[in-house]
Amino acid sequence: MLEPVAPSDEELVARYQIAPGSLRSRDAAEELFRRHQPRVVAWCYRLSGDPTQAVDLAQDIFVKAWASLDSFRADSKFTTWLYVIARNRWRDELRARQSRPREAPSDAIDVEPWTENEALQVLGAQDRRQLVQEVMDEVLDDVEKKVMTLHYGQGISLRAITAALGLTNRSGAKAYIVNARRKLNIVTKRWTTESLRKR
């Protein structure tokens, strides 16, 4: 006899959408959400580093998911759709933390100071952006680039980056930042206004 096959996430959403509010739909949503609760709690814990806050964030994410389940369209996986909600919630959380400087996580690390380079300052913002990305492509490895981008570009703490990317080395994201800054400093020291114009 064939074992019953568990419905896919997308089938559960379709069941929910047949008659939102019915017992059957509610059951489908419950099954769907329970399936993803560990994933969402783990993700929130990795980013917040705090078990209590992780549950609060996860609750917010599922409240939003419940309120928006009608609008799910099967042009993406449910997991991806849920991630979008989770990511946006975390972005809001980061903004709130940044507006509360005293509560902002401390990422004070003992790193090599940046090499001053006036040539870089005279470039326009768009050129600097392009230049930095090109140089990072040249001298940093894939993980270093991701860590630098998430930390400097998105304001995510090194502890959260270590957990979110699943970095298993001893110092986590900090080691990647230290290496990346050292490599970038070596390149920056060589830059002159003339050399940047030629690039």
Partner: peptide
């Protein structure tokens, strides 16, 4: 290079 330039370039 400094933190401000990196933030600007990587946002």
């Amino acid at each position: 290079m400094d933190d401000r330039i990196l933030t600007e370039a990587l946002s």
